[in-house]
Design a protein around this nucleic acid. Sequence first.
DNA 1: TTAGGGTTAG
Length: 608
Amino acid sequence: MRLPPSPSTAHNHPLLQLLRRCADLPSLRQVHALLITTGLALHTFPLSRLLSAASRLSAAYSLSILDRITNPTVFLFNILISSATPHHPPELALSHYLRILASGRGLPAPLLFPNSFTYPSLFKLCRTYRLLDHGHAIHAHALKFLDPPFDHFVQSSLLCFYAITGRIDIVRILFDQIEDPDLACWNSVIDAYTRCDFVNKYIGITDTVGGNSAELSSEALSLFVKMLTCGVRPNEMTAVAVIIACANSGALYQGKWIHRYILKNGLKMNVFVATALIDMYSKCGCLDLAYQLFDKMPHRDILSYNAMIGGFAIHGHGHRALELFDKMKHEGLMPDNTTFVVTLCACSHVGLVEEGRRVFRSIKEDSGIDPKMEHYGCLVDLLGRSGQLEEALETVQSMPMKPNAVLWRSLLGAARVQVNLEIGEVALKNLLQLEPEISGNYVLLSNMYAASSRWDDASRVRQSMKDHGIDKVPGMSLVEIDGTIHEFLTGDRAHPNSMEIYYKLEEINGLLQEHGHRARTRTVMFDIEEEEKEDALSYHSERLAIAFALITMEPGIPIRITKNLRVCEDCHAITKLISVIYEREIIVRDRIRFHDFKDGACSCSDHW
DNA sequence: TTAGGGTTAG
């Protein structure tokens, strides 16, 4: 009779290497049989490798192995919890965790306790599958079962979990409790600041790009500096998180700084870093720099293409986006959902209706999948913006899934621009059912009534906002001057240079009138006298930012503004004029896209 | 045995 191998030889047995290479269930069964005949299946370590391989291939098979083990240890459960895959879904991983918790109840089974290897996998699971309630409950368990302080693995995974809940306050409290945080903890907390920004934007804590965005991103950058002063060396993951923070807030100066830092300190310009940089440069208004980086990449994947096509889209370069879309396919890369979204979006921003329709049709042809909600959204936007409202409405009504709020809002926006109250009201009725608490929806409706001089209806909507305690999101603009970000709200007088700014605005307004500008007051929603409406317009946040930049910045340097809302019709018209009068290029990033104002024209060709 | 990466409709 053969004696089972000793535990030390069990760790590097050739059968374990075979296990790693098993790509299907029959070969796994064969190796399993060999493990039994050699006696290796009696040891915990080979069993853990077997379970790990089995959970990759079949949940049922891994369960059958587990059932045959008389007294499975926490170690083995941990292996199963950490192997969430399509074959080993999150519910199964959670059930393994429940078995650990229940272990003491059925005597004579030994009492098991989850350990510090159990929790990082569980938090990752909750983060990946967005199981928020489970995550909170599991955090409470960890406090009960683990001795304080938690190790860095547990703390880091906990930060990452709270990042997806949008609770940056909790992330920060947890991070501040970490003694001597390691690289992973720093990366996680910096990443959490950029991620919370995203989460907040989409779960409606704020529906702005600015606001929280600037605050959270600048805190991410401060944390990065603090990390350097603590002597922790950043890696590529840190760089990616910091670049995203710069992209979110439009902080070009800091973005360029981190780019230099990467080159100077020997961090690898891998596909993750390069893609993040491409996105950052695009979102900070430097499309040329983004393209240079993209062009120099030795290896590009789908995400790099998507980032670059997205860059062309927000800058209104529809044809260049389409060229890249074709090039990508020629290189043998299969477009994914995002590729179609950004390419359609590029068509929409310049009114390439026929090209857009073609791209939409190619979704099924190229990828074999049915268009998703976001693709229908792009199509509706494309049709609506280009004046084909009836077809846009038909698309919404005939699409195979229930239209979401974004889709109705898109249609409403188009109806407002083309003053089509009939379609606008249909869109709004549906929109308010889905999103009764979002202020922007009421503002759109109110503006639409105001545009057709239905003042009673406009003020009824405003009253209804007040009754429901819904505040209008204030317009906000950011301008970066010598690395410092200055923030302006509509009608803001809080800036230390406020007096000079308002003097400058008077000068600007005078010059605009001399150049024959008459305010387009259609976008001001209140029923007030024309003169007052002009006043309300003259203090829109981007005008304060432009005035301040004109006072402060050297002549000839482009002014870069980031806005949280869309540019209004009048601001768009006057910025074109200012670009001529003051001979300045003004680049405005609004909530959706870029406007590059130069010599009296805008890169969007007034299509936005 | 455990954690942390790039793009995405308005």
